[in-house]
Design a protein around this nucleic acid. Structure first.
Lengths: 172, 172, 172, 172
DNA sequence: CATGAATGAGGCTTCATTCAT
DNA sequence: AATGAATGAAGCCTCATTCAT
């Protein structure tokens, strides 16, 4: 994952991965059928991790505003903690050739997430909850995009505060 | 550009490009020094196009609100018109290995754009114009990201209206 | 080595080498980093072989005349035994484009050899030992040149006797 | 010729030659059928030049000793004057692949030269005139070899004097 | 479970040569 | 007489994958 994220999927060779992992190429192929299968597993691990976090938030007994705040905080937190990981995830979203067979799965997940967030906004009393959900998702993804590109040069903490203030003005 | 955008930079071979363009591989190398140089030229064309549009808006005698509205409309318009083009541009931002010598140039451009937009928000009387500029940029890039991934399934027109309403509520 | 010597460095392709060696192209690259590295290794093997022979002669307790005779005999012997090898070595000296990073190393070796031979001539009481060494070297290299070009048509044995008579007239 | 000599036959492209000559590639092909034909013409020019010089010396009414001295002086002179040219000539002798169809011609010339020089040594009263001719040829070629490799670092003038003293000791 | 030697398809690039103008 | 756009074969090299051990 580190290598894929740092150098790109195509520029990372199985040899490099094996060397970095301290195992032989042969052994890698005992655990993963192909380079693409390895990528698939990496992605799925991320997806499941995200799903779990999301589920925890939704199943909590916090109110809608609190859930949105938590979701925002957690999103920022995850990205800041595993920047490389998410850089890879995002970059892959644009390398459609590397993801054949995986896209439908991801597409469905994305739609579900939108629905969940739309639900939160509905409970918050938004006029157009679904559009609001799209908008909220765009804000977060846009910020992540910029952060991934600029890294330390990006005012990530300030932006987090800014986002929370915009979507949850009544807090505090 | 079409092939790069559709299949990714690495998965597109010079052979494919030559065949699609209806010329020989050799001729490609009469016009571009290398595969990377070809990419460079494609990117630079996009950058210049964007710069020109931006310049036109800024040099117009419209007021700040009108300039922001134009910028938003134009951004949505450009993306919808040349989706492939901008898909490539965005995807490349994540294939750092394909852009080695080009990144500084692009980085500088990005910073300049932020400054320009911050100027507009300042004229609009925003409290934190620079953060507002980052935020506005994130919204647009986030929407583009989603639109690029979902294409026709994305409610692009509604989102445009939504964005304008958020940033320019006083209009109409 | 055989192919390089017979057809020249540039006219010998990696494909040919692999086929002749009965291995795949890929395997060649497991052992040699590049075509040039392969050449480098071939040359270095020759250089070390020559150095060892030379060292043996110089460290023997034979007198100067005997050492010169041995050196002459050994030189003729080596060339006759591994004609292809030395044909390659000599031909490479003229393909400066194939030897870029190797020339300094070879140049130094050549100078050392001249010094060693000059030492022998000094012990033999020659008036201008260094010029004599250059001259001796020229004679041997010139003969090798002709022999390499004419092969069996060249009177190599007679020339060996002729050289020894010229440089060591007092023998016998 | 300059480019062939400096960079090697294979490393010199027709494009380079055309650019250096200030003409188009197309025009080159109006005058020479192929790259190899161009090389052929270059070589033949050199061969004819050498033949003419040799003929002049032999048809002069100088005695054998004077002819040998002249031949020696002229050989050194020619090489020193057009080093690049002769470097190319010699390098080609080792790139048998570049000379297909030309070798027999050159081989015959070489043999004739040996016979001519043997004749001179016979007139000088040498015991084994043919071997002496081979030996003389080897000395000159060997020196040229070293000179071509070391260029200014080689004591070419001293070696010329040394050679003349060896083969024509009675002079002066 | 583990290795790494071996393969071969395919990628980027160069370059001698042709030909319409 | 002169150009240079165009071609395509061939060269070097990489790398995912297999398999005997």
């Amino acid at each position: 994952m580190e290598l894929f994220a740092r150098n790109g999927y195509h520029s990372t060779s199985i040899s490099q991965i094996a060397k970095e992992a301290g195992v032989s190429k042969g052994l890698l192929y005992n655990y993963f059928d192909s380079k693409e299968a390895l990528l698939h597993d990496i992605i799925m691990e991320a997806v499941e991790m995200a799903n779990e976090v999301m589920g925890n938030i939704l199943s909590s007994d916090a109110d809608a505003a609190e859930q949105l705040r938590m979701m925002t905080e957690v999103t920022f937190g995850i990205i800041q903690k595993d920047l490389h990981y998410w850089k890879l995830m995002t970059s892959l979203a644009f390398q459609t050739d590397a993801l054949t067979g995986l896209m439908p799965e991801l597409r469905k997940m994305q739609e579900e997430t939108i629905m969940v967030i739309a639900g939160i906004f509905r409970r918050l009393g938004a006029g157009e909850p679904e559009k609001e959900a799209f908008y909220y998702g765009a804000v977060l993804d846009g910020i992540m995009l910029h952060y991934m590109q600029m890294e330390e040069a990006y005012p990530i903490e300030e932006m987090k505060a800014f986002v929370i203030k915009r979507f949850l003005p009544e807090e505090q």
